[in-house]
């Protein structure tokens, strides 16, 4: 506030120089109106920033058809394909889900959606509805054909149904559980979100600093 007062004082002097002939009372009035204008324009700037962020988000929602077009990977469950802090771009098209795709889905009784790979698909003949089974990490990294003894016999790994990830009694993931499928990927960017979720104090400091910056800065 100190700085903005100084600024207005500086303005006062320039105004006095340019409008030297105008009486004292009008000068005071114009200063008051300038301060009001400044505050008003700052509020508008802040509004534009918030609104444009909202516009971008909503536009992405319209384009991708997914209610959360961008998600941050929170767990290590998809290593080594996706690591904690990576960003996934989701898409929700009319195309039916196919085996091998990475889908993000909700499970009843769990707050956070899950990112896992589809290993089984059954598509109904009459209705076209799909029953989908997923599994967790991509695990085994294959290295040269000499490693085959390690892979051999590594069968009957757990899917998410047997792994107990689904709601009790739930056999399949269906279309209405699915938020989207992953189509693109950007590493590391999601760390900002993770830090802000884990340590809310950082979030408040950041928002506070940004707010202060908008108030203080002249333009």
């Amino acid at each position: 506030m100190q700085r903005s007062w100084c600024n207005s004082k500086k303005k006062k002097s320039t105004i006095e120089r340019t409008m030297g002939l105008i009486g004292e009372t009008t000068v005071v009035d114009s200063i008051k109106s300038i301060q009001f204008r400044q505050a008003f324009s700052q509020a508008v700037t802040l509004g534009i920033i918030v609104a444009s962020a909202l516009i971008i988000w909503k536009t992405l929602m319209c384009i991708t058809g997914s209610q959360s077009p961008i998600v941050v990977v929170l767990s290590e469950s998809m290593e080594p394909a996706f690591q904690r802090g990576d960003i996934l771009f989701l898409h929700m098209s009319k195309d039916p889900i196919r085996v091998g795709e990475i889908v993000v889905f909700d499970v009843e009784g769990r707050d956070i959606p899950i990112v896992h790979r589809v290993i089984k698909v059954h598509e109904r003949q009459d209705t076209g509805e799909v029953d989908v089974l997923t599994k967790g990490p991509d695990y085994i990294v294959m290295r040269t054909s000499r490693d085959t003894p390690n892979l051999h016999g590594d069968h009957n790994l757990h899917d998410d149904r047997r792994g107990g990830l689904y709601a009790p009694g739930q056999l399949w993931i269906q279309q209405h559980h699915i938020l989207g499928r992953a189509v693109g990927f950007l590493p590391y960017v999601g760390w900002a979100t993770i830090i802000m979720t884990d340590k809310p104090i950082v979030k408040y400091i950041l928002i506070g600093a940004l707010g202060l910056f908008v108030i203080i800065s002249k333009d």
Binding site: I119, K120, K135, M142, T144, S145, T148, L151, H152, G153, D154, H155, N156, L157, D159
Partner: peptide, 9 residues
């Protein structure tokens, strides 16, 4: 690669 395996899933 080349691998000899039973079905994993």
């Amino acid at each position: 690669f080349w691998i000899h395996t039973t079905n994993k899933y």
